[in-house]
Design a protein around this nucleic acid. Sequence first.
DNA 1: GAGTCGGGCCAAAGCGCTTTGGATGGCGTG
DNA 2: CACGCCATCCAAAGCGCTTTGGCCCGACTC
Lengths: 350, 350
Amino acid sequence: MNLKELSAHLGLSQTTVSRALNGYPEVSEATRQRVAAAAEQHNYRPNTRAKGLATGRAMAVGHVIPASARHEMVNPIFGDFISGAGETYATHGYDMVLSMVDDGDQARVYRELKAKGTVDGLIIHGPAVADERIGLIRELGLPFVVHGRATAETEPYSWVDVNNKSAFQRATELLVDLGHRRIALLNGLETMDFARRRRAGFEAAHEARGLDVNLSLMLSEEMTETYGHQRAHEMLDRDDGPTAFIVSSMIIAMGVRRALEERGLAIGRDVSVITHDDDLSYLRNGGEVPLFTATRSSVREAGRISAQMLIDQITMPTDEIPTRLLEAPLMLGRSTGPYPSTDAHADAAQ
Amino acid sequence: MNLKELSAHLGLSQTTVSRALNGYPEVSEATRQRVAAAAEQHNYRPNTRAKGLATGRAMAVGHVIPASARHEMVNPIFGDFISGAGETYATHGYDMVLSMVDDGDQARVYRELKAKGTVDGLIIHGPAVADERIGLIRELGLPFVVHGRATAETEPYSWVDVNNKSAFQRATELLVDLGHRRIALLNGLETMDFARRRRAGFEAAHEARGLDVNLSLMLSEEMTETYGHQRAHEMLDRDDGPTAFIVSSMIIAMGVRRALEERGLAIGRDVSVITHDDDLSYLRNGGEVPLFTATRSSVREAGRISAQMLIDQITMPTDEIPTRLLEAPLMLGRSTGPYPSTDAHADAAQ
DNA sequence: GAGTCGGGCCAAAGCGCTTTGGATGGCGTG
DNA sequence: CACGCCATCCAAAGCGCTTTGGCCCGACTC
């Protein structure tokens, strides 16, 4: 059923039916009711493409996923982010279109999205410290919101990000205040902006407490369980091994925990661990008292916020460029404790 | 730059330019070259909506994600599936549109997708044993492919699935052959079709080996790390606890492993574990010899295959209804061993 | 009672593309 | 030399919708 048929059926013009359905005032209330009823009955929905052609709006938002970011992003947190964003899109009648893209093709894809008119706006995922995408998209004139920030970008742009630096600074300070002096940082790839900021927070905490960072305890790799497991073992093998770990994801934390258990070390007593927790729906840091002490920030919520921000920019463009910094509170769990441990057990286990 | 402008620029009609670009024969080779060059130079791309309107094709495929399936599916495996499917779509010029939907709204959303003409086809995720979506979509007349199967569905439909039953049967048989008699099954929710089939394989193996299944060792819950951890502990607390576990996901397996380590049990010696491994890019069951013995099947590959199958159905509809059963080979890792253990160590550890 | 106003409706143009149904003209044929 | 054929190109219709610019007529003003 299309407009033509519906209006013929009603004995009205397409104009009137269209207006009735879209809430324009030039239609009598009686007619509007009649039209609405008929539309409902015949399950009429305006064709998206035709509507888009006529209005110049695609009613769709694009998410471009660089293939390189797959391991870092697609899987662990992407699902939750998308899921949050999707809820928001749904309530506003927007579709979400996803593109998986090889890194070299990025520019091409963005241009294409613009030229083909597939989407009204874009969400940029996983920004690097210096990210050329931002300049490109701004140039194309598509509204966009970056999930995260790109430190090297000098022009203003719209973003939603967690306060990674302050979160990791507070986490580090907590450990220092608990007496830890050799703290390891198992970070994500520091080409990624969030990782760079976390490192900055880690360093800032050392500085604030008058300590030197130990470069040999700072690692930056893809965030996998194996990474956490392997590196924790290696570090703990050393004479001057760490007494505490700060890690960038729950997955890494699980690897670290496994290593500790294999060594008979009690987490939170012999060795402390703090992780960043994206509050993923399939990886809860659960319990009344969470297992891991963590800097927590819901990536799903970030998805909702980003989507809303983008839709706002699409529907009512303004000159201001909105940004949103989300705090990541430090949630105390069972994985942190004083050093040296007050419990004799700790030494025995070693 | 649109067709009109481009053709004006070239001094040709829109017809000719369109034909040149789309490879029709009624255009001289010289003209075609000229057109192609100009299009390239001006970065011309036909507007998707206009093209869609004219051709009746949306050049897009829909993935509807039921909100209820979030924990089970969105996160752990969804990213990889989507990523595989996305690659295939990209090479064929299709867009992928995602909808997050509350369960009650499912029917509405499918109808809408059809009526609005947003997509040319659908992929159905996470089918339940009895899944009303299949009938609905068939009725709507949209091409679709189900990732998984719905056992209760009687009419034929297109699907791509792993041979869950045979995989779990072989896994179970291996454990029995290794001497295990009390084998636990930590399954996913058995409203999901895949879980039901895995259970069937588990039971079939018992039957084939002349054993009775122990209902108290069979669980069916959401597949989280906590689930594996908690339930493994509970089961091992019992006098007649299991000597081996078969679990439905790497995440559960990680929970079980943690429980074993906490109890000082050596995995693969004191207690055996087999898991299903979706070969997720962020959760590798790595190493030359994998950590876990596992039934392995790449969900990313399943995504590619499903996407290709759907595109084929869209572009050249036939009467046959293609299906594809993927085998999940049993990969021997370090988490399985004979029972009773030949190693005296095992008892000592207990 | 003539003139004005505006509520309610409609015809038609236009969004950017594909595709049908010609037009045109150079060339070989008898 | 007239004819027909083919290669090449074009004008215009149509996809389903929104929106501009009117039309019509009853109500209201003076």
